[in-house]
């Protein structure tokens, strides 16, 4: 009996070089980033950096501006994710029937998603213009007093939130809609035959079938909200009075306004760790049983 030498699989040559490149690039980048964050590298005085150990990390936790930004990120991410999921699911259930132009509605829902985020920011800044914006005009029609949407520290974060919700709820709608349409309808009919009322069918049969899609879209939205930048840059630039400065935005300011790139990278690393912890927590909450399909 001869032993057969395992012939080398040529398909490996297709992906290995690229995976190796990506691995090398990401490892090199990670090491470089960590190295920088342990020094006090500044673009203002290049070439005179020295090793400072964990100073940048210690500094972070004693930096009230950073802590406020972290808290704001948590608030923004939680609100954006929860509202977008809830609103999106409500719209999906509302649209779950046959009607003329369903395809057209779907196409139109795509528009906010593919709109350039910078343009979305400008659009909402325009609508929120205190003197001549549409938002205040509508409020005046309803007899409500004017709101300084982007100029008031108490309101600005929520104004940005509205723009984010406007852009990304359609994404939730489309994804959950797709999941709904690929789900089998027999169990729903079975439940109806078994005597369930419509709300019971929705609650006990339909929603559990959509759980997976909802969980995934929630994860995606959470990741993106943590990293949100464009809307903040365009609509408020972190203001007024830092009231809309998220951690990601603060990192940008530290790096490219203060040119303190060591501290900025320490912030970026903390943000990454924070993102991963949040995701893992969310993941274990959303997918409680390991290996569940």
């Amino acid at each position: 009996m001869s032993t057969v030498a395992t012939a080398s699989d040529p398909t490996r040559h297709f992906f290995q070089p690229i995976i190796v490149c990506l691995t090398v690039a990401s490892v090199a980048l990670t090491l470089f980033v960590i190295w920088i964050s342990l020094h006090d590298l500044s673009l203002m005085r290049a070439g005179r950096e020295k090793f400072v150990g964990l100073d940048n990390y210690v500094r972070f936790f004693g930096d009230p501006r950073a802590m406020a930004a972290l808290w704001r990120t948590v608030l923004f991410t939680t609100l954006a994710t929860v509202i977008e999921i809830a609103l999106g699911l409500a719209v999906v259930l509302f649209l779950d029937r046959d009607f003329a132009m369903k395809r057209l509605v779907r196409t139109l829902l795509l528009v906010p998603i593919i709109m350039t985020p910078v343009v979305v920011g400008l659009t909402w800044r325009f609508l929120f213009d205190p003197a001549s914006g549409m938002a205040n005009y509508l409020l005046s029609l309803a007899g409500i007093s004017q709101v300084d949407w982007l100029g008031s520290p108490q309101v600005a974060l929520f104004s940005v939130l509205i723009a984010d919700i406007w852009q990304w709820t359609p994404f939730v709608i489309l994804l959950v809609m797709a999941a709904l349409e690929s789900a089998p309808t027999d169990p729903l009919d079975a439940a109806r035959v078994d005597g369930a009322r419509e709300w019971q069918v929705t609650w006990y049969v339909l929603l559990p079938m959509l759980r997976r899609a909802l969980a995934i879209v929630a994860l995606i939205r959470a990741i993106d909200s943590i990293k949100a930048f464009d809307l903040f840059y365009i609509m408020t630039r972190g203001g007024p009075a830092l009231s809309t400065e998220t951690l990601n935005y603060y990192g940008y300011i530290v790096a490219f306004t203060n040119f303190d790139i060591s501290y900025a990278l320490a912030i970026a690393i903390i943000l990454t760790i924070f993102t991963n912890v949040a995701l893992l927590t969310m993941y274990s909450v959303l997918f409680p049983k390991a290996g569940e399909r």
């Binding site: 009996m1 001869s2 032993t3 057969v4 395992t6 012939a7």
Partner: peptide, 8 residues
């Protein structure tokens, strides 16, 4: 299409 472990 599939390699074998032993034999010919």
């Amino acid at each position: 299409l599939n390699p074998i472990d032993s034999g010919a």
